[in-house]
């Protein structure tokens, strides 16, 4: 199954969750937030939210700015 994580294609096993996708990028769990197809997925739901083919996952954090 192919999902886009921060604009890059990743191959994930079927049934992979949001938590699995986040772990592909970072081991951090605080200071980051996730949206799937432009909807925020609360941290408490990462483990139980499965991804689907071609989902767009955005993993954001705070950086210098403004």
């Amino acid at each position: 199954m192919n999902v886009m994580i921060n604009g890059e294609a990743h191959d994930m096993p079927p049934g992979a969750t949001v938590a699995y996708a986040v772990q592909a990028l970072t081991s951090a769990t605080s200071g980051i937030a996730v949206a799937v197809n432009d909807e925020v997925v609360r941290r408490s739901a990462w483990d139980t939210t499965p991804l689907s083919e071609r989902d767009r996952v955005e993993v954001l954090t705070a950086v210098q700015g403004g």
Binding site: N6, L60, T61, A62, V63
Partner: peptide, 16 residues
């Protein structure tokens, strides 16, 4: 203020 951006796995240290 801070901005929100895509996580960069290579980034060292954080403004937070």
């Amino acid at each position: 203020t801070v901005a929100m951006r895509r996580l960069d796995p290579a980034a060292r240290g954080s403004v937070l």
